[in-house]
């Protein structure tokens, strides 16, 4: 899918291949500060390629430089939730922010979810991660009737 950013730079959105994995992992490491090679290998094995209802997409510029990525899948009947699209990862390189790259990735994965008849898209985000939360808000996301709960496991 050929697109152009708000600063008129052309970019492309496509499915991640094995060759892209080091650049994707490096972008994540730059942003999160944590290297997770095993995690990225596992994500690629489960979500890479064209698997039914699963998406691992990237945005790259005309020079094949990685600008960002998004991951998600269609999930059904978890806690009685009808099928919905789940986004469980998105990152955009600082150079690509505020230029429409994140929005294009989000729209591309939503287009994929629609093909499966899904009408709702969900994600989970730390309320301390204001950048990502603001991004999802700007896409029209609001708090859902599901709430995430957790506890520390006693040893």
């Amino acid at each position: 899918m050929k697109l152009s950013s708000s600063d008129d730079r052309a970019f492309d959105i496509r499915t991640v291949t094995g060759e892209d994995l080091p650049a994707v992992a490096a972008l994540d490491e730059r942003i999160s500060g944590i290297a997770k090679p095993d995690y990225w290998q596992d994500v690629f094995e489960r979500y890479g390629g064209r698997r039914k209802g699963r998406y691992f997409l990237l945005a790259e510029d005309a020079n094949k430089k990685l600008l960002g990525y998004i991951m998600g899948e269609v999930r059904a009947w978890e806690f009685d939730s009808p099928p919905c699209g789940w986004i469980f990862g998105i990152n955009v390189d600082s150079e690509g922010r505020q230029t429409g790259v994140g929005t294009a990735l989000y729209q591309a994965i939503c287009d994929g979810f629609r093909k499966y008849g899904v009408h709702t898209v969900r994600t989970t985000v730390s309320h301390k991660n204001e950048l990502v939360m603001s991004f999802f808000r700007s896409q029209g996301m609001m708090a859902s009737h599901y709430i995430q709960l957790e506890t520390e496991l006693e040893s």
């Binding site: 301390k128 808000r137 708090a143």
Partner: peptide, 22 residues
């Protein structure tokens, strides 16, 4: 309070205008 603060802090005027439009 944490949820309240995060909500107000994650919604920009631009996002709010989209919500108004809806």
């Amino acid at each position: 309070e944490a949820i309240e603060r995060a909500t107000f802090h994650s919604i920009t005027l631009d996002t709010m205008m989209k919500l108004v439009g809806r």
